[in-house]
Design a protein around this nucleic acid. Structure first.
Lengths: 156, 156
DNA sequence: AATTTTTATTTCAAGCATAAAATATTTAAG
DNA sequence: CTTAAATATTTTATGCTTGAAATAAAAATT
């Protein structure tokens, strides 16, 4: 009789697959919570929040293509989201001087203000959802996830 | 001068947020790869694959509501996906005897066959994408992710 | 300078996803 | 029994998302 756990008996192959499925479910669950929060409290959506977050971090604004690259979404996708944010006066779209193809996008003052409020609550929600993870857990988790970033950069 | 890393200097609060953002990016990257694979090799989509996977694991079939609960997606969403899978003769929809409201859904023989082939390649792709994670990494990662499952079950 | 290629963005068609409302059926209460 | 509440699913309206095609401008080649 072996002392190995059933987990260790499983091929690394299968365990990678299980880990992925677990990670996917976790992500979806958290995303669902975030969507719920954004809809109920701010009448907005996760994609809109993501766009605003990216713009908030880039004081000088971003080009449409930079935005889609940053968010890992398609080019045309960003067009629609920005359109709606512009309608709501949260985002400003201006021509890039010297390149008439490009568009520079940034938050309006109101957009900045609204985002700061949302971001505070967003952080609190994440903190609550992951409350069971203490510093030690994060010490384990983050480096592993960061190693996946290496894959990402290499293969994308 | 402290021996603590800058990471440990950051509040657990902020580190939970960073971990979430990292996890989200990883998930999106892998999902993009899977979509690409499913589209190019099988002319199908990730949601369709997910549905077929759930049905494959339940030999007796699933009710529409069981399916949506299992996949963490809305009820109406499943309706559309199943509709298209039925059109493609990969899924069968039959009435539940004794309850004329409910529908039981299961894979056709062809659906089963197609899924088995896709699943093999899917596993290989995941294995490749997460190749940098060895057994030790998984030993760290899986328990932490499983602890999040506890949150999920508690709060959902 | 004219042509080709690349880059930046939008438009398009199709499918995914949601919440809310509608439909139909079953179960429970009165 | 009859009405009310709960359950299973579909429909609807809106927004997200994609890949591919279209448009337009800039950069590179010839």
């Amino acid at each position: 009789m072996t002392l190995l756990s059933s987990k260790s008996d499983m091929s690394v192959n299968k365990r990678r697959l299980r880990m992925w499925i677990r990670m996917l479910r976790t992500t979806r669950f958290v995303e669902a919570r975030l969507r719920e929060f954004l809809r109920d409290k701010y009448d907005t959506t996760l994609p809109r929040f993501d766009v605003m977050a990216a713009l908030y971090r880039s004081a000088d604004g971003l080009k449409m293509s930079e935005l889609s690259k940053l968010l890992l979404v398609s080019n045309g996708n960003v067009t629609g989201i920005i359109e709606r944010l512009v309608t709501d006066a949260l985002v400003l779209r201006v021509n890039v001087e010297g390149d008439r193809r490009a568009m520079l996008v940034c938050l309006t003052d109101q957009g900045r203000k609204v985002f700061e409020e949302m971001a505070r609550e967003h952080e609190a929600l994440i903190n609550d959802l992951f409350a069971d993870l203490d510093g030690e857990d994060l010490d384990e988790l983050v480096p592993v996830l960061s190693r996946l970033k290496a894959i990402e950069d290499k293969k994308s």
